[in-house]
Design a protein around this nucleic acid. Structure first.
Lengths: 142, 142
DNA sequence: GTAACTGCAAAATATTTGCATCCTT
DNA sequence: AAGGATGCAAATATTTTGCAGTTAC
């Protein structure tokens, strides 16, 4: 009944100690199909007829907990989620790349090839994590 | 009935074309008194007995619209607001500084002296705005 | 078989809107 | 006096929780 799924779906779920269920396969499939970040609302729009809103919340939470996706805070106060790269361990995300929000198409995605520049803070601050979100116009919208 | 207010309150409101009301004076006073960012909930906790929750929403929106404060998105999905510096025109924020979130005291504040490092994006991207949020441990919590 | 996942209902929160009244300019 | 700000009520929207039934391993 469903289109053929992305080959990585199974291995990714297993690699992150997530049990393989229809909902998780579908939602992970969305992330793999679309190389951009997704908000809860986006996902609900796509699979909301087949899966409960609550299941989507819990699925996203499980994905974050197990290090499969990471969250991206944006100015519009709608949390987005995007697939992590291999170096994201469970509960320990290394978001060394920056995030780009296109004002035109409203897509959000990771620029994996762009590394977050280092910042020099005044004496006395300990840096734990750096989050960088750039907004503008993406390549396909120019 | 209220403690003596910060001397800048009046001039700041007027400079941003905001009419001077009790609520606005109080809420702006909170921002001036505390050199950190405030979330809606923080403000409600402080003045919620005197001003309606709706008024706080509208006040924050007005402050953002008129360029008096800017919003800071964080990983916990709770939007914070912080005073803008002089170069924030109405509806046109220049957030050239970075934001720091302390995991210890949970305060969020602008590091005005730290300028956002420039990023080099792949060809084809237009940069409009850069938002950088660093989390870690702040000076007073070390 | 057991633990984990899901759907449904409902509670708890958060945000927005309309409108009558009051305050600022 | 006129326009804008506020409070209250209520409509929406969002997120969380509990529990019983189902599914993965």
């Amino acid at each position: 009944m469903s289109a053929k799924q992305h080959p990585e779906v199974l291995s990714l779920l297993k690699a992150h100690a997530l049990s393989v269920t229809d909902g998780r396969k579908e939602i992970l499939g969305l992330f793999l199909a679309r190389k951009g970040a997704l908000a809860h609302a986006d996902i609900e729009k796509k699979v909301g007829d087949r899966f409960d809103r609550v299941t989507i919340y819990r699925t996203l939470q499980a994905f974050v907990d197990k290090g499969l996706v990471h969250s991206i805070p944006t100015k519009d106060n709608a949390m987005r989620y995007a697939l992590c790269k291999d170096d994201c361990a469970s509960g320990h995300h290394h978001d060394h790349h920056i995030h780009f929000v296109c004002k035109q198409c409203d897509n959000t995605f990771c620029l994996d090839e762009v590394v977050t520049p280092s910042v020099k803070l005044p004496r006395g601050y300990t840096i734990n994590q750096v989050e960088m979100v750039v907004s503008g116009v993406c390549r396909s919208c120019q």
